[in-house]
Amino acid sequence: MIKPGKMLREVLTSFFQKPATVLYPYVKVLMPDRFRGKIRFLATLCIGCKLCMRDCPTNCITITKVGDKRFQAEFDLDQCIYCAQCVDSCPKKALESTADYELAQLQRNKLKMIYHAEPPPPQAAAPIE
């Protein structure tokens, strides 16, 4: 039947329902485990193949060699589109997605994430002695 106020019952019931609004900054929204958030770099696993640099659509990854088998990664988070292609490209699983999505910064330089390489292990220094 065509009539005005078809949604009347629905709106009246939703008055007594809990609001659908999420009080976001106060109540944290959890992302599913597959979420592609900020990328984490595991320096110990990196072999410096730079496949991630080659496949990154926005060229936001820079891997630099800082010593023998030690690599440092630099991410420009303001350029990253969080596609996680680097995670797929990495043959050694040295990169992984996290569920961290709160990435806004007031200062631009804070958007540059630098993962320093691990300090050289002590046994590597041993043969020189």
Partner: peptide
């Protein structure tokens, strides 16, 4: 507030 609550929002 009423408008919001009827629309299932917080308001």
């Amino acid at each position: 507030k009423l408008y919001a609550r009827l629309q299932n929002r917080i308001g």
